[in-house]
Computed example of a mutant assay.
Amino acid sequence: MRISELASSSGVPIATIKYYIREGLLPAGRPVAANQADYGEDHLRRLRLVRALVAVRGLPVSTAADVLAVLGDGRGESVHRTLSRVLAAMDTARARDPAASDAGLAEVHGLVAAMGWHIPPRSAAVDALARALDALDQLGIRFGTRALLPYARLAERTARVDLDLLAAPAGGDPAEHAVLLAVLLEPALLVLRRMAQEHHSAAHGPDPAQPGGADRP
């Protein structure tokens, strides 16, 4: 297919496709003339994967490129090893963030110990959670180990469900399947949490700010 057909099939503008090719996220097409190239179904699938990482998951283009590179060179290693490397690649974008405070790190280390998790004490995830606690603390919201424990237990149950879904469909790439579930399902889980909050908030009663809300029985 021509690049115009690739754009039409994927819904991605031609200029964006050319940008992804320049950045190495999408392979170039097969040259068929001086200014023309041919693209196949592999290009269409790869383009949809790139758009999912960038537009749905919200990864920076450079981070999406790192994730795709891991998927490309991870053939032959275990699914869990590939997934671990992908998550590490995603964390590189946070390495430039301000350092977490000692107090925030202490709270997270306490949580990790309470949950019995085997996580390096200065992993990117530990730093990210500590920075989030620092931000809450600066706004006057003290959110420590005890408050985090119920969330950690929910997260552990969710992770177990994730691992049960890692097996790829017949003929599929197990590593890519696992990465797509782990990376792309995360925004869906956040939306589910928001929907549950909306439901339970509404169940507490009408909002007085809504027209007629204060007059309802």
Rank of each mutant, 00 (worst) to 15 (best):
V50Q: 01
V79I: 12
D173G: 06
G76I: 13
A209R: 10
P169C: 08
E198Y: 15
G212Y: 03
L26V: 01
A113W: 13
R81C: 08
A113C: 11
R2Y: 01
G76H: 11
A64M: 00
V61W: 00
D215G: 06
A178Q: 03
P211M: 06
A52C: 07
A182R: 06
G76V: 13
A65V: 05
H118I: 09
A188C: 12
V79W: 12
E23N: 03
M90R: 07
L154V: 14
S123E: 02
I3Q: 03
A188H: 14
Q197D: 14
H200G: 04
A15S: 13
H200Y: 14
V61A: 03
D164H: 11
G205D: 07
A182I: 04
A65S: 12
A106P: 07
A147N: 09
L87C: 07
D207K: 07
A124V: 03
A178W: 05
R216L: 15
A65F: 07
A113P: 14
V70H: 02
P217D: 15
N35I: 01
R51S: 14
A159Y: 12
P187M: 12
A100S: 11
L163G: 10
A188K: 06
G58F: 11
D164A: 15
H80I: 11
A15K: 11
G24D: 06
H177E: 01
E23A: 09
D73P: 02
